[in-house]
Design a protein around this nucleic acid. Sequence first.
DNA 1: GTCTATACTCCGATAGAC
DNA 2: GTCTATCGGAGTATAGAC
Lengths: 209, 209
Amino acid sequence: MSDRRTAILEAAATVIARRGVRGLRVEELAEEAGVSKALIYYHFDDRAGLLRRTLAFVNNRAERYTAEQEAADPPAGPLRRLEQALLLELQDLPHVRENSTAWGELRASAVFETELRSELALASVIWIREVADQLGEVRPTAPESALAASAERLTALLEGLSARWLCGILPLPDARTAMREGIAVEVAHLARRAAEPSTEDTPSRANLD
Amino acid sequence: MSDRRTAILEAAATVIARRGVRGLRVEELAEEAGVSKALIYYHFDDRAGLLRRTLAFVNNRAERYTAEQEAADPPAGPLRRLEQALLLELQDLPHVRENSTAWGELRASAVFETELRSELALASVIWIREVADQLGEVRPTAPESALAASAERLTALLEGLSARWLCGILPLPDARTAMREGIAVEVAHLARRAAEPSTEDTPSRANLD
DNA sequence: GTCTATACTCCGATAGAC
DNA sequence: GTCTATCGGAGTATAGAC
């Protein structure tokens, strides 16, 4: 992968975070990357191809950030590690906000551009499994299915909160608090699931009506 | 409000659900509504104004649907009522899908179009309070702050799951299951909050590390 | 691989008649 | 209030030189 190519992808993430997928203009991207418009069409067939590659790039970068953070600030215990991983996306650092915004944009546009779906689905599965694994380290006796379900909910919650934060209707501290409490609630739930293995996949329903 | 105006707004929701806010072309909208392009600019100042009005329209319509559903299928008890309200958005009926898609699109585009934010924030606050109230009827002894926090999480979870469903990476039945379990988990959490009033705003943290 | 210059399409917005 | 006709700008993509 050439330097130029990477520079274009980095710039694409920046411009998408600034203007959205719909607001991305090849000309503005060219300026941001310090290259000509034509070079973008040379490296990526067209606009759609560019978006696909950008999505992959953003996903990779998010993985790198997670690894970097864990190295820089080693979490004390599995619960802290899980919190760190999930709260990582809710930070007002330039590159984090950029990544979150670009990811949200690309996912939103996938509702209408089918080409992005497979890339998106893959990243989603990996991310959910990662969270499920970390939940498993916090609650080793909880059943796999319960871990997977909790991970699904926690990652969906994160995306919902992130969307609200990014569109300005939920202050960042509130989003972080909501996420932290959401983790605590799910972890407590898993503790009960582990303690009462008799409760089947529909957890604690009978006693709620 | 004239018939034409309403017809345009209805058509706008339809076209947005079909092509996205990004894909909305005033010409296609005119065709869908059976009017001329110029009439759209007559009734709504510009594209941005049209989007603002469409957001308000979609919100109103969602409220109407909720009321209609409650009348048509009276829920048995407060928990069922809550479930019905939250699961309403996760249904593959044309008008529901249209509403959800349009709402998701408009929220996503609000990241870059500041004008939509106030309308969006207002609808969000109302919706969260509504859910908090219904949670309060399920768990009358739970503190207000806990109800509000649970409502925030549940509505964010709904939006996260809905986004995944609409962009095709999460099958609808899975989304519905996740939502139902999410409700159960939060309701169980509120039961503990009511039972142990000593536990402060950071729920069950101390015993988790 | 990278640039400059340009072709051509599409679309938002307005003018002006009825 | 509603239409037809049109303008002007913005934006994607390509041609062709280096």
